[in-house]
């Protein structure tokens, strides 16, 4: 790809992207924890019961 067709993000754009990426990562981790703990608390020991 020729150089003239590419553009480098500015420092501000890179900084903003980093901030968004961190926020998405934290939100995903929080969501996984919430779903895991919520499932265990809601179903209790039944979460491990499954038909053979």
């Amino acid at each position: 790809m020729p150089d003239k067709d590419r553009v480098k993000p500015t420092e501000a754009q890179l900084k903003a992207r980093r901030s968004r990426s961190i926020a998405i990562a934290l939100a995903l981790i929080a969501f996984v924890v919430i779903v895991y703990l919520g499932t265990v608390l809601k179903l209790g020991p039944a979460v491990f019961s499954r038909g053979m």
Partner: peptide, 24 residues
């Protein structure tokens, strides 16, 4: 590397400067 550090020029106008704070 192209995806991470450089973008096509036609997208340049759309490179976001929105921070997480803006979404909040």
């Amino acid at each position: 590397a192209l995806v991470e550090r450089e973008h096509m020029k036609e997208d340049a106008g759309r490179l976001s400067e929105a921070t997480a704070g803006d979404f909040i």
